[in-house]
Design a protein around this nucleic acid. Structure first.
Length: 425
RNA sequence: CGGGAGGUAGCGCAGUUUGGCAGCGCACUGCGUUCGGGACGCAGAGGCCGCGGGUUCAAAUCCCGCCCUCCCGACCA
C-alpha cells in the first residue's frame, strides 16, 4: 500500500473527547473514527488489524470443529418471548428495539435464541450431535455508560460460539477444549490471558470462566496467582491478595484487568424454552446441553493497544499488525522524486510484495525524515525499512524493529531475503 | 440514572469574568529556502462559536430550555 494513497493521516494531538490510551492512539494513527460514545468506524488500517484478529480466531475455531455461520442482526420478538428475555432485564435494558407491534424486532445483543431455533430444525437424534457453531459479527448493546474507547462500546465486534451436546460429560470435555483454544488465540494476539473464575450467569456456579488480561485501564479486578494457575474475579473472590494460592501456594496478587473473553454453560435453559430436543437411544426426548463462548474482537484489538505501546505510539505484534513492514523512502521531494532513492524504494516495495510480505510504503513527497519516523512510530508496524541517500551511498538500507532501539544496516541486494527470514522466525 | 468537567475552522486551543470586527497553533493551497527524528519565510483559503428561545442598539460572552462528549459512581447477558 502506498502511504500517499492511504486516505487517513496521522493527527498530532490527542482528540479532546478521548481519554483512554487505545482510543487516543488508534484515532491519532488513523485506525478508527468515533461516531458517538461507544460507536466507532474502522478505517483501512484498523480494519486490517480487525481482520487479522478474526482470522486467528477463525482458524482456532475451525480446529475445534466450529462451523462458521452468519446470523441476522435483526431478531424476531417472538423468539425472545419464548425464553422470556424480551421483557426481562436483557430485553428491557440491553437490547435495542425498533419497529412497532407485530413488526417489532430487536438488534441482537447475543444469539442463543436464534441459533437454538435454527438448529432444532436439523437436530432430531443423538446422531445429529454434537454441533459447534460460531459467528463473528457486530453486536449491539445499550451500555448505560460506554467508556474506555473501544473497550466498552454499544456497537462492537464479537465472536460467539455455541455448543450443542447430548450429554453433560461431552459438554464438559468440549468446554475444556475451548478453554485451551482461547488461551492459544490470546497468546497468538500477543496477550497473556489469565483464566479467572467468575460468577455464573444464573445457570450454574460451576464452569464459568473469564479470560482476563492484566492492565491498569481494565475495569475488572481480579485476585490472581503470579503463575497464572489460579484466579478469581474480585466480585466473587473467596480469597484476597496476600493469601496463599490454593493450587501452588504462592502469594496471590490483586490487579486490574480487561475481560477479553468468557465461556459459560447454558445447561438446558434455551433448549427447553425453545423445545430443542433430541431422541436418545431409549427413544426419550432430551433437551440439548448448551454452552456459550464469547470473544470481543474489537475489544481485543483495543486491549492489544493498551498492552503494546510506548510514548511514541502503538507497537503491533507481528501477528495482528496492519502491515508487516513499513518501508520509508527519505529524501523524496518533488524535484528529486525521480532520483535513485525513489527507484530503489519502489523496486524493494515490489520485491517484498512478490514475497507475500505486507508492506506500507511511505512514498510521500516533501515530508521530512522526522515526520516519517514519527508517523511510523505512531502507526506501529513491527518492521521498519529505511532507504535514503545516506543508505544508498553504502549500497545498503536500514532495518529496525519497532520494539527495539538498535538498527541494522543490510546490503541492498540481500535486504529482501534477510527481512523475509526475520519475519518468518 | 447521580456527581464533576467540557462543546469556538478538519484537529488541538484562547477569547466568556467585565456584551462591542471571530482569533492562535497544527493540518490545507501557492511561491521560495530546507532535507535522518513532527523545518522556515511570505502570501492565501477555511466558521451554524453544539441546538432552540429570551434580554439588548449590539450576544461566542448574560438568562431559560434542550442535545452531545469525557471522567467518577450505579449498572455490565
Amino acid at each position: 500500500m502506498y502511504q500517499s494513497k492511504l486516505f487517513t493521516k496521522t493527527i498530532r494531538e490527542a482528540p479532546r473527547d478521548e481519554q483512554s490510551i487505545n482510543a487516543i492512539l488508534l484515532e491519532r494513527a488513523g485506525f478508527i473514527h468515533k461516531e458517538m460514545a461507544g460507536v466507532y468506524s474502522f478505517l483501512p488500517l484498523g480494519l486490517r488489524v480487525l481482520r487479522k484478529i478474526e482470522a486467528i480466531i477463525r482458524e482456532e475455531m475451525n480446529k475445534i470443529a466450529g462451523q462458521e455461520i452468519s446470523m441476522t442482526v435483526l431478531q424476531p420478538k417472538r423468539l425472545w418471548e419464548e425464553t422470556g428475555r424480551w421483557s426481562g432485564q436483557l430485553g428491557r435494558e440491553v437490547m435495542y428495539k425498533t419497529g412497532h407491534g407485530k413488526g417489532e424486532v430487536g438488534l441482537g445483543p447475543t444469539h442463543e435464541e436464534m441459533l437454538t431455533s435454527i438448529i432444532k430444525g436439523y437436530v432430531q437424534s443423538a446422531e445429529d450431535l454434537p454441533l459447534y457453531v460460531y459467528q463473528i459479527q457486530t453486536k449491539f448493546r445499550k451500555e448505560p455508560r460506554a467508556r474506555s474507547g473501544i473497550l466498552r462500546g454499544r456497537e462492537f465486534g464479537m465472536k460467539d460460539l455455541y455448543s450443542f451436546d447430548k450429554s453433560l460429560e461431552n459438554f464438559k470435555k468440549y468446554y475444556q477444549k475451548v478453554k485451551k483454544s482461547y488461551l492459544t488465540i490470546f497468546k497468538e494476539c500477543g496477550l497473556e490471558a489469565i483464566i479467572t473464575e467468575a460468577s455464573g450467569a444464573g445457570f450454574t456456579k460451576e464452569y464459568t470462566h473469564e479470560f482476563q488480561v492484566l492492565a491498569d485501564s481494565g475495569e475488572d479486578e481480579i485476585i490472581y496467582c503470579p503463575s497464572h494457575d489460579f484466579s478469581q474475579n474480585k466480585e466473587i473472590a473467596k480469597v484476597k491478595a496476600g493469601d496463599q494460592c490454593p493450587v501452588c501456594g504462592r502469594k496471590l496478587k490483586k490487579g486490574k484487568s480487561i475481560e477479553v473473553g468468557n465461556i459459560f454453560p447454558l445447561g438446558t435453559k434455551y433448549s427447553e424454552a425453545l423445545k430443542a430436543f433430541f431422541k436418545n437411544k431409549d427413544g426419550q426426548e432430551k433437551p440439548i446441553i448448551m454452552g456459550c463462548y464469547g470473544i470481543g474482537t474489537s475489544r481485543l484489538l483495543g486491549t492489544v493497544v493498551e498492552i503494546h505501546h510506548d510514548k511514541n505510539g502503538i507497537i503491533w505484534p507481528l501477528s495482528v499488525a496492519p502491515f508487516q513492514v513499513h518501508l520509508l523512502a527519505l529524501d523524496l521531494t518533488k524535484e528529486r522524486v525521480a532520483t535513485k532513492v525513489a527507484q530503489v524504494a519502489e523496486e524493494i516495495y515490489q520485491n517484498l510484495k512478490k514475497e507475500g510480505i505486507e508492506v506500507l510504503y511511505d512514498d510521500r513527497q516533501n515530508k521530512s525524515a522526522g515526520e516519517k519516523f514519527v508517523d511510523a512510530d505512531l502507526i506501529g508496524v513491527p518492521w521498519r525499512l529505511v532507504v535514503s541517500e545516506r543508505t544508498l551511498s553504502q549500497d545498503s538500507l536500514e532495518i529496525k524493529e519497532r520494539s527495539r532501539e538498535d538498527k541494522e544496516i543490510v546490503n541492498i541486494k540481500q535486504a529482501v531475503k534477510h527481512l523475509k527470514e526475520k519475519i518468518k522466525t
